[in-house]
Design a protein around this nucleic acid. Structure first.
Length: 607
RNA sequence: GACCCCGUAGCUCAGCUGGAUAGAGCAACGGUUUUCUAAACCGUCGGUCGCAGGUUCGAGUCCUGCCGGGGUCGCCA
């Protein structure tokens, strides 16, 4: 439709009624919020009025005149300040539905991405324990976003960054070492302050005990620590991968932070749903220090210097010590203060290796990167974007999606967790209780930057109040209609492709009831929705759209109760039945496609 | 003190990147079933879009300043 409006304005330009060279980018043609305003509306006259030095309504009349001759347009009206409302002929909706049915699972796929490479990094939970519910939200969000971007035509790489180089993995190793001594029969008492108290390291300790016996105890810490650390990290990553698999969250690549510095890949190869190889970033020997390289590059650009920082505001830092340090001039890029790259003991800060990591992404050809982080990392966004800008010479772009906290409830009552005992609520426990579909859908049924209340009791309720159930029921109901439709159309194939091929041949012009046309209109919005959601990096829009589509479908179904002639299956009228089932096919196809993007199953029946 | 996010119906939230009379669900009240799944549907009630300015044909949406809630603030992860 947009092309038709453009054509109409072009015609006015060549007729000399409009000046040439107008900016047409702000012209939109879309379904109006209020259906009584027609099927489509355009703001063309209001957008062009000022630059063309014309009155909006007069200009609208001129454009409307051109559009009236279009064979698919039934009515053109001018309303309000200069909107042009279009009512399409039923044939236009028949065309739209036909396209949806024919395209099947490909309906809504877009070429807007043009195979542009995008890197989406999500989860990246530290390998120091199993995934908790906060990680879970980021995992589901990132996974669905990646699905969406692929559907929109981008070349997406899904990535997990393993923080296996910092102090916290040494803490992990010391904790595991205690569990090892415990496994050897020692009474270790309560876990000392600062170590990981969770009991998930007991298995690690037991393995170490059976593999090494007393040997590790005989060593100095410098000797046993790397051994224990590697074992513990590998086991924790295996844990996390299991948690990801339970959620059906996949990655293409697990990127080791340690490999940036040491050039050594972690020797972990996994198979299964969350499978991916760990990247080898450097040839060996000699292992180049990619962090040092990144810093050197920035230093050459003059954005790294030695200097002092003012003491931190807010909560007092106990061991603060004023000293000269290596700083990145992030203030040049809009950050509040410059940021340190080296710790006082001479090792790199996380920020330093994060710069090297993002440089690696840039070097691997990604000009667009999306990071999914927890909201507590919000203060980190500006400096990271600053670093990306600097290290890519302004060519690469980083979008950070902050995922807000999840508050778990049961029947409206917050579930309390005791951090003291190391008892965070685990992702796997929630999945086990309410199922993967409910977790995934509810995590996506909210904007990423809004707090999320997740009620364990409500998500397994079977009612309209439960969006997951409601949308899935829509899909199942459609399948049920196909099964019953066999009475009138005995030759209807059961497989989706075959069925769609048959139904596509139906005479769709028979669908002329206003409610039916409204439902088809909703189906026809799907491709545009995909593009808008992909553009904004907002998968939650799909979830909301599916809920609306399911709602209209349930409504349409119920109309048949009062008005039998509107039922999907009409005895003795195979032609009308075929047309109606084509409409159901359109709904079911979009529901299935949308649920697939969210990673939620589309059941055949609900019983 | 600075920065980031949030503030829309009694509650939980959408609002398609600036469009027309701001929408759903829940809650409350009323109705619909000899029916293709009532696990559903329809209706009624409910609003100073936190407040005040500004930008323009037009603001819940963009800008500025306040108010309220949350988060973060050198080497933590």
């Amino acid at each position: 439709m947009l092309e038709r409006v453009h054509a109409a304005t072009d015609a006015l330009v060549s007729a000399g009624k409009l000046p040439a060279g107008l900016d047409k980018s702000r012209i939109v043609v879309e379904p109006p919020k209020d259906a009584s305003h027609g099927d489509m509306a355009t703001n063309v006259a209001m957008v062009l009025a000022k630059p063309a030095n014309a009155r909006p309504r007069e200009l609208a009349e001129a454009v409307a005149e051109k559009l009236r001759s279009d064979p698919l347009i039934a009515k053109v009206e001018i309303a309000g300040p200069g909107f042009i409302n279009l009512v399409l002929k039923p044939a236009a909706w028949a065309d739209a539905l036909h396209a949806a049915v024919v395209a099947g699972a490909n309906y809504g796929k877009s070429a807007m991405g043009a195979h542009k490479k995008i890197n989406v990094e999500y989860v990246s939970a530290n390998p120091t324990g199993p995934m908790h519910i906060g990680h879970c939200r980021g995992a589901v969000f990132g996974d669905a976003l990646a699905n969406l971007l692929i559907f929109a035509g981008y070349d997406v790489t899904r990535e997990y960054y393993i923080n296996d180089a910092g102090a916290q993995v040494d803490v992990l190793a010391r904790s595991a070492f205690l569990r090892y001594r415990e496994a050897l029969g020692e009474n270790i008492g309560p876990m000392p302050e600062g170590l990981y108290p969770g009991d998930y390291l007991q298995e690690c300790g037991a393995e170490l005990a059976s593999d090494y016996g007393q040997a590790l105890k005989e060593m100095q810490e410098a000797e046993w620590l790397p051994i224990v650390r590697e074992r513990a990290i590998n086991m924790m990553i295996a844990e996390i991968r299991n948690d990801l698999m339970a959620l059906n969250v996949v990655h293409d690549l697990f990127f080791s932070e340690r490999s940036l510095i040491e050039g050594e890949p972690e020797e972990v190869v996994f198979t299964g749903g969350a499978t991916a190889e760990v990247i080898v970033v450097a040839p060996k020997p000699p292992p180049p220090d990619l962090v040092a390289e990144a810093i050197a590059k920035l230093r050459a650009q003059g954005v790294v210097y030695e200097g002092r920082l003012p003491p931190p505001k807010g909560a007092p830092v106990e061991d603060y010590e004023d000293r000269e340090q290596t700083l990145f001039r992030s203030t040049d890029f809009g950050d509040d203060v410059d940021r340190p790259l080296m710790k006082s003991d001479g090792s790199y800060t996380y920020f330093a290796s994060d710069i090297a990591y993002h440089k690696s992404k840039i070097d691997r050809g990604f000009a667009t990167m999306i990071d999914v982080w927890g909201a507590d990392h919000g203060g980190y966004v500006k400096r990271m974007q600053a670093a990306v800008k600097a290290v890519s010479d302004g060519k690469a772009e980083l979008d950070v999606k902050l995922v807000q906290l999840v508050r778990l409830l049961r029947n409206g009552e917050p579930i309390k967790m005791s951090k003291r005992a190391g008892e965070l609520i685990l992702s796997r426990d929630v999945v086990a209780e309410v199922g993967r579909d409910a977790v995934r859908f509810m995590m996506l049924y909210r904007k990423n930057d809004a707090l999320l209340d997740f009620d364990l009791a409500k998500v397994i309720e079977q009612s309209r109040d439960n969006a997951v159930f409601y949308v899935q029921y829509g899909h199942a109901r459609g399948q049920s209609i196909f099964r019953n439709g066999l009475e009138v159309l005995p030759d209807l194939p059961a497989d989706p492709e075959g069925r769609a091929a048959v139904l596509a041949k139906a005479n769709l012009a028979l669908l002329d009831d206003p409610a039916e046309l409204a439902l088809i209109r909703r189906i026809a919005q799907f491709p545009r929705l995909i593009e808008a959601a992909a553009e904004a990096h907002e998968p939650h829009r799909i979830a909301f759209y599916l809920y609306e589509l399911a709602s209209e479908f349930h409504g349409q179904y119920s109309l048949g109760t009062k008005s039998p002639h509107l039922r999907f299956i009409i005895q003795n009228d195979p032609k009308m039945t075929a047309a109606r089932l084509a409409m159901v096919q359109g709904v079911v196809g979009v529901l299935a496609a949308g649920l697939a993007l969210l990673g939620v199953s589309a059941p055949e029946e609900m019983r």
